[in-house]
Design a protein around this nucleic acid. Sequence first.
RNA 1: GUGACCGUAGCUCAAGGGUAGAGUCCCGGAUUGUGAUUCCGGUUGUUGUGGGUUCGAGUCCCAUCGGUCACCCCA
Length: 447
Amino acid sequence: MQKVRPALLRGFDQEYLPHEQLQFNALIGLVRANFERYGFLPIETPSAERKEILTSKGGVEKEIYALARLAAGEDEDEASTKGALRFDLTVPLARYVAMRERELAFPFRRYQIQRVWRGETPQASKGRFREFYQCDIDIINRERLSILAEAEIPSVIHSVFGEMAIGAFRIRINNRKVLKALLQKFEVPQANSAAVLRVLDKVDREPAARILEDLRREGVPRAAALHQLMTTRRSTGETLDALKGLGLDPGAVEELAQVAAAIRKFGVPEAAFGIDLAVVRGLDYYTGTIYETTLESYPELGSICSGGRYDDLASYFTDTRLPGVGISIGLTRLFSKLKEAGLLREPARTPAEALVVTMDGRYLERYLDMARALRGAGINTEVYLEQAKLKNQLAYADRKGFRVALIAGEDEFARNMVQVKNLLSKTARDHPLEEVVAAVKETLYGA
RNA sequence: GUGACCGUAGCUCAAGGGUAGAGUCCCGGAUUGUGAUUCCGGUUGUUGUGGGUUCGAGUCCCAUCGGUCACCCCA
């Protein structure tokens, strides 16, 4: 028979072996636990939304996947003609909040961990895929939003990456209003400001000569001075002083200063965050504080978490003014990069810790009883269900990383005993059947 | 979408125009009940696909598909 070649679609290629999936799930669990620790509430939204919702921000339509049934006919239904896959979690959130405004408690703090899809050219080396997970938190309020919300976000980030134990990281903050004032100060032509911001965004990735050339092409008269200001690393206080010294809009600088001060109050250590004027963020809906987070030892990984403040989340859907602040962790990219850099702990290869070897079919019930007793005591246990030699069952246990094997056959059962084997130390001891739970616990967790 | 490079076993790679190979992985075995290593044996392929040149093509030429990387943009 002609076989269909088992293969994946380019960009839709992030599937893992079971032990990697366990590792990935652990990462999601860690993120979720930290989000909930700060009181964020979970929501999920459908994978597909109406096209006009997704394009409401006037977005990049070529990146959006539209829905279509493979066998589309005359009876084409509404969902498959009007729908498209979400490309982020922020637009669905805006739609969600606009729809359910009366049912939600504000300030609304939600987290959402789901897949999104983008029709861009994938590049695995850059952790860039067509299907990937985002982990978002947002705080949204009606009419106004405390500056404390902007300061709390880095605190959550700090908790998440602190617990991940992936080395020193730096939460870099900036403020859109400050950037705007800077552009004015440096006499950037209004029409070119978006292009200039894109250039400035690359300031720490590209050589100075190229940046300067690009800036001049965009009509920036004092390109060198601007470049120098962006690239000089200063303490938070020094940066604020430098900005004040330039005579920028004091309101903008003051806002940045207040956020920085509040971040400190949230207990985020000075070493873990700082003002970085080169943080720009391409997305134009940010209006205040913006964030990017990078690993100190692996800056080439790029930002592993980014976001910012926006003045009106759902202006396309409702007249209610809904200011908010949020960030997104690109978990698929982060996972692939951490794996590549060897920063992830070696994962368990099985969620179970004990394997009940079935040596002799006559004792099936005893094996099952044993497993039930262990599970009842909270020990994840698997029973080997196939007929196989003891040797092969132990090889299986080894490959899957069980820590304990329970071995019993005619000899043991005749004496009402079971052999409890520690697969790591390769030692074994017989125990009375009724003490099997205690014996396994001791083997797993010590006396 | 634009440009450059690359397609040989599940994976990593070899084969000067003359019969497609190695390592690894996987599977089985090494006398009846113990997972590393070792030893023995085994499956591996329309050489991405389709044409062309040639007595003969994995190798040369053309096309096509796929992949990788850079740019754009982003997580």
